[in-house]
Write a protein that binds this DNA or RNA. Structure first.
Ligand code: MN
Ligand code: MN
Ligand code: MN
Ligand code: MN
Lengths: 218, 218
DNA sequence: ATCATTTTTTAGCCTTGCCTAAATTATAAT
DNA sequence: ATTATAATTTAGGCAAGGCTAAAAAATGAT
């Protein structure tokens, strides 16, 4: 299984994997938006991925990863998270800085180097954002936790994970004292899917439900 | 100083820097050979580098780096050597394994990451092959040492550096017990630039003068 | 059922960096 | 001083991975 796919191919596979939460196919425009690419560019790439047997594509309907595509996507997620953990633990990066660097390095480091990092770290099971590190054989550990947007009001909770999104959002979380391990509580919830106000150790903040979805608690 | 040059550009600059030992311009074919590309490809790239003000090129004569080109080349050498040292010290690579990984990573890691690696290593001055690590401001420390090919016969010496070449050659050196810090001595020298026989702690070997030039002693 | 809007695909173009084959220039040998 | 050889450049192509503009299909609203 020669994983010698290009950086672009690897990023497309990872994006498809993350967008395919339910099991409905991923739309071309979602994918394009995620990767900051024109829809036409995504269409062209999807065709190549389909030819390579990495996705199944029904024109005008959407795309889903094949088993082989999923395997490579999960492997990229594994690499990404191990690198993030390494950057934090060994090179003293902050958890809101690791993603940017890992986004590049995940395509550059060898399998050997990923293994060494994992060993040096003591075989970690989670990355700095609380996301689980998949096994080398493609198994993704189940992650307990509920999106904060679905948590009952005025009920104490602990942040277990911040689902990866943009670096800006992560920096905003960091700034607001929102980080894995921290205690939170929903103080107020505006009607009609309005902003959710939460209290953490460092004060109160209002978040859009969209954003509150990225905070997983328990 | 936006160093956002492509991987290819960076590798061409580094190659030019290493080939330009004396001060005669570097020939296009030398450069092409070093980078395993066709001469025509090197010509095309040289033209782009010249347009970007990184080299001066006289058609049919050769190329030499401008000051700005030299600066970027030296910076790439710095990155390469810091990464090599990091791979050896932190990830337990052997010194004959580090080059291959560093050749890729040097283009992928951020300046921040290079700085962190250098700090975590305790600001090292040399890489695993005994080559000096240039300063961040482009100054290259002078390296004492003489090519073994020019060392007097039957005179004990210590290896201070193995000048970087192919991974295969480095692995051969490792296998023959030739490594920085080791004692060597020329036992015999065949006439007409013939093979040089040397003795190390682990036995005797014959090397071409070409290869013996890569071993710097003192 | 028809029309308007949105989504997706197609068509055509661009840049980077490589290639081979053919010209051109420099160098070496008569 | 030619002439042969070697080095270098030019010409013409190719694959990846982007882009915009135009066509086509799906979706939603009268
Ligand atoms: Mn990436
Ligand atoms: Mn993460
Ligand atoms: Mn390189
Ligand atoms: Mn080295």
């Amino acid at each position: 299984m020669p994983d010698m796919h290009s950086r672009s191919v690897q990023d497309y596979l990872k994006a498809l994997y993350k967008l395919q939460h339910n099991d409905t196919p991923v739309s071309t425009s979602e994918l394009a938006a995620r990767l900051h690419v024109a829809p036409a560019s995504a269409t062209a790439m999807i065709k190549k991925l389909a030819d390579a047997g990495l996705v199944e594509h029904v024109p005008y309907q959407g795309s889903r990863l094949t088993e082989s595509g999923r395997r490579e996507a999960v492997n990229m997620v594994r690499r990404h998270r191990i690198i993030e953990q390494f950057l934090q633990e060994v090179l003293h990066y902050r958890w809101d800085e690791v993603d940017e660097e890992a986004e590049v390095l995940e395509h550059a480091v060898s399998d050997k180097m990923v293994d060494r990092m994992w060993e040096v770290l003591g075989r970690p099971s989670h990355d700095p954002h609380g996301s689980p590190i998949p096994d080398a054989d493609g198994h993704v550990p189940h992650q307990p936790g509920t999106p904060l947007s679905e948590w009952p009001d005025n009920t104490p909770a602990t942040i277990v994970r911040l689902v990866e999104r943009s670096p800006e959002e992560l920096r905003y979380f960091a700034q607001q004292g929102i980080r894995p391990g921290e205690a939170v509580q929903i103080v107020q919830r505006a009607p009609f899917d309005g902003p959710i106000t939460i209290r953490t150790a460092s004060g109160e903040t209002s978040l859009s439900p969209e954003l509150a979805q990225a905070i997983h608690v328990q």
